[in-house]
Nucleic acid binder design. Structure first.
Ligand SMILES: [Mn+2]
Ligand SMILES: [Mn+2]
Ligand SMILES: [Zn+2]
Ligand SMILES: [Zn+2]
Lengths: 136, 136
DNA sequence: AATAACTTTGCAACTTGGTTGCATAAACTT
DNA sequence: AAGTTTATGCAACCAAGTTGCAAAGTTATT
């Protein structure tokens, strides 16, 4: 019984071969991945299946999606017991050198004061620059 | 000599009919507009011309583009002497009720402390929720 | 005024990322 | 084993953005 099996079952998903594969890929990365990243990695697998796998993962809060402004949505693993609540939100970082998108899990989104009458539901904050790896 | 002519000339663009039209449309709005918004508004005009008009405006810093996460880029007028520098950056707000995107010109983006080695170049911060107009 | 040179516009066509419908295959349930 | 549900594969579609190229319009030069 694999480790990934547990993770899937814990999040109420059946541990199919495809899901194991995708979850493994996500686990071995320290950066967020896009659908097309996965398509390249598993060139045998069907795009739609990968797409639906990610959707399923997201619905069940195993991963969260990141809109980093590049035009392709990235995905990254959620923390162990994450429920994707507003207070779980963190800043994301897009490196313009290596083009990688990072979850800055220890960097919470700072609070903003909005004009009168504006009510916040959620926030997306993406910082662009150079990452620690690309710093010379 | 129209007011819009001045604005275009000041930003080093020739005041063509198309540009006048698009600039007028932007001026009369208090929310950001997308390319397809303009396509609907000027159903005679060609999509590509509108597209290039927006690009030209952006290059010359008459407008700035906003990635609000909806999948279509929005555009809004820059402040009078805006140079689109990092310190000119403000928070954007997307209302999930009316689907409008606002420039919160008086809401600067709060500063964030990044992990060691990460260097910021620019930031995008989009708040989602309900706007003052949609508040009951 | 005629010509040349450059800029703007219109049309067609294409790319990429995301998405749907439907049929088959695989996995559970009884 | 038969029936029911769930997952996968393939084709096709859609929206947003983008490019190439030729025609139209503008500005500069003779
Ligand atoms: Mn993240
Ligand atoms: Mn703005
Ligand atoms: Zn990097
Ligand atoms: Zn609203």
């Amino acid at each position: 019984m694999k480790d990934t099996d547990d993770k899937l079952i814990n999040r109420n998903m059946k541990p199919t071969a495809m899901r194991e594969l995708v979850l493994d890929a996500l686990l071995e990365q320290n950066v967020a991945v896009s659908l097309s990243d996965l398509e390249k990695k598993f060139d045998k697998a069907d795009k739609v299946t990968l797409y639906r796998t990610l959707k399923t993962f997201e619905e069940n809060k195993l991963i969260h999606s990141i809109d980093d402004g590049t035009g392709s949505v990235k995905y990254a693993l959620c923390a162990e017991n994450c429920q994707c609540n507003p207070h779980d939100l963190h800043v994301h970082f897009f490196c313009t050198e290596c083009k990688h998108t990072y979850c800055l899990n220890d960097t919470p989104i700072p609070s903003v004061t909005l004009p009168l009458g504006f009510e916040i539901k959620t926030i997306n904050m993406v910082v662009k620059g150079t990452c620690a790896n690309c710093k010379k």
